[in-house]
Design a protein around this nucleic acid. Structure first.
Length: 560
RNA sequence: GGGGGCGUAGCUCAAUGGUUAGAGCUGGCGGCUCAUAACCGCUAGGUUGGGGGUUCGAGUCCCUCCGCCCCUACCA
């Protein structure tokens, strides 16, 4: 048994997440966590809401709420949506927690003691009308390069030129529109990443098995030379900087957010958390896997490691990164701010969690951005889930109920059709297992689908409805194999469709969390006690009708 | 501007430089009748974004052009 630490990128607090966010980190992490638990490993699956930063303050203001109350409420909203999707976090914490405050301040102190922190004076754009300093992107104005009038302070959206807020002509606040903006002096703490470059490079060098994309991003930052990075902000909401002269300032959200991975573990287990995170406290044998979107890779391969390595304390660092591309809404962007696409709460209103889980994971954006369309979703639900899997379970259990009195029949022995099934499963199950281990989700679930289809092929070949008329033992052996197959498929499918797997196991009164099938198909397909009663389940997946699809397309504004 | 990635069948995706570029869905044909008009089998479908090059051999390597995505350190 191994110990597996799994973190999902933290969903930001400013509103419920859409399907793209879900499949970008939380869902694949959940599938992996469930798979690893089923294999008998000890898993800590950690997630949390990321609650600090300017966008959170603005979202709270827009909602007319105090920031703390807003975050508390949105945390519960996101937590409920995650539960609805069956995301099996061992903890879903908050980056605003006392644990994170304590740890973030601890890291800052250690970094300072080690000479990696320096206070620097600088001037930033301040808006009296808003009563706040403005991050670069919240300053807008006319682009000096192309004349575009709504260029942002970090980059012009029209010509793409990278800008500094002071470059803008006629700058104004993007928040209030006020043109009364000025430069003010302020002091901030800088993390001297430049001094940590050798350590970080050596650490990256020590991980040659990271994906090509991950490594190239890390080396790009290293090769350009790590720049010192401001880790504090002039905001009210955040983790206070415990230093004289920094009253009213907080740590930068990107400094404290990854530390929440650790703090959330402490929220989960205030006594045992160090065994996951401190290599001197037992974490040296932990395997740590991070899931994130492609935009997040640099922060996980360079920035956060700077914090950990610079502390000179024995913190656990990531072993394996899984980064995903974007899910797109019909080829365009899902957008939280513009409400474009489908959001987690809406998704659960219209279809069960497992249908989304299956579609999203079987089509996960692993090698490139992938288009989500309602038509493809509907097709996957109807074909893969309703026809291939759901109908298989239905036809087996219904036939067994009507012909064999609702018990697992006795008699007969495996014949030609069964032997062929054994051979196929003994090839496919190890292949599927290996793809899951490698986190090659699309390939894994193509294999799982093929395993479902193998069940239908088997039934077609065995044709117990025919043999029942002439050779009841033959039919009994086939039906018994079919029923065992339902159980086996439940176990194999549980990481991706846990709710359905539970229903399939309940057919045989099995309530325990499924464990991963070990051994040969011949034995796996004869585990149910002969003569044991079972209960045929209701239809597992209802099909989506054309009218329903049209209604959804209308509701969500699907491009046509 | 710089760096990285991607572009393959109508759609979503595979393919250590090596036979005739493969799956699933969709379409067409046939079979079965246990089952949610489901299932099983067969089949159709390609100038691998354009052009050039290296090689005995290129979807794969090189150059170039086109298009899309990510990063570029104060959005997170």
């Amino acid at each position: 048994m191994a110990r597996i630490l799994i973190t999902s990128a933290l969903p930001y607090i400013n509103g419920i997440k859409h399907l793209g966010n879900l499949v970008g980190s939380m869902l694949p992490a959940d599938v992996y966590a469930r798979f690893m638990r089923a294999r008998g490993h000890e898993v800590a699956f950690v997630c949390a809401t990321d609650e600090h930063g300017t966008p959170a303050e603005l979202a709270a203001a827009a909602a007319g709420q105090e920031i703390a109350a807003y975050c508390a409420e949105q945390h519960e909203v996101q937590k409920a949506a995650c539960e609805g999707f069956g995301l099996s976090f061992d903890v879903f914490g908050r980056s605003s927690s006392p644990a994170n405050r304590e740890l973030t301040q601890h890291f800052a102190q250690r970094l300072e003691e080690n000479g990696y922190i320096e206070a620097r004076e600088e001037s930033q754009v301040y808006s009296p009308a808003d009563g706040r300093f403005l991050p670069d992107r919240y300053v807008e104005g006319t682009c000096p390069n192309c004349g575009f009038e709504r260029a942002r302070g970090d980059q012009c959206d029209n010509c793409g030129k990278l800008l500094d807020p002071t470059d803008l002509i006629d700058p104004y606040s993007a928040i209030s529109g006020s043109r009364d903006v000025e430069l003010r002096e302020t002091r901030h703490l800088y993390l001297l990443q430049s001094k940590l470059e050798p350590e970080v490079r050596a650490w990256v060098d020590a991980h040659p098995h990271w994906p090509q994309l991950t490594r190239s991003i890390a080396y790009k930052w290293l090769d350009e030379g790590l720049r010192d990075r401001s880790i504090t902000r002039d905001l009210d909401w955040g983790i206070p900087v415990p230093r004289e002269g920094f009253e009213g300032k907080v740590f930068y959200v990107w400094f404290d957010a990854p530390i929440e991975y650790i703090a959330a573990t402490k929220e989960m287990d205030s006594d045992g958390w160090e065994a996951w995170w401190r290599t001197d406290q037992g974490a040296d044998d932990v395997s740590y896997v991070q899931f994130m979107g492609k935009d997040n890779v640099a922060f996980h391969t360079v920035s956060f490691p700077c914090t950990l390595l610079g502390s000179k304390e024995p913190w656990k660092t990531v072993d394996t990164l899984k980064s995903l591309n974007w899910l797109t809404w019909y080829g365009g962007k899902f957008s939280t701010s513009q409400g474009r696409g489908i959001f987690m709460d809406q998704a659960l209103e219209i279809m069960p969690a497992d249908t989304w889980r299956w579609y999203l994971m079987a089509n996960a954006p692993e090698s490139d951005d992938t288009a989500f369309t309602l038509e493809a979703f509907t097709g996957a639900v109807n074909k893969d889930l309703a026809d291939v899997l759901g109908n298989l379970v239905n036809r087996v259990t219904r036939f067994a109920s009507s012909r064999f009195d609702g018990v697992v029949p006795e008699g007969g022995a495996p014949g030609e059709a069964e032997e062929a099934l054994f051979v196929e499963l003994d090839r496919r199950i190890p292949a599927y297992t290996e793809q899951l281990e490698r986190m090659e989700f699309r390939k894994a679930f193509a294999e799982l689908r093929a395993i479902w289809a193998a069940g239908n092929e088997y039934l077609q070949a065995a044709a117990p409805w025919t043999s029942f008329k002439t050779d009841k033992d033959r039919a009994a052996a086939s039906v018994r194999t079919g029923l065992n197959l339902v159980r086996l498929l439940a176990e194999l499918s549980a990481p991706v469709i846990p709710f359905t797997a539970h229903k399939m196991l309940a057919v045989f009164g099995i309530e325990d969390a499924p464990s991963w099938p070990q051994g040969e198909a011949r034995a796996l397909l004869d585990r149910l006690p002969h003569g044991a009663a079972f209960t045929a389940p209701d239809v597992l997946f209802r099909k989506v009708e054309d009218e329903q699809l049209a209604e959804w397309a209308e509701r969500f504004g699907a491009p046509r």
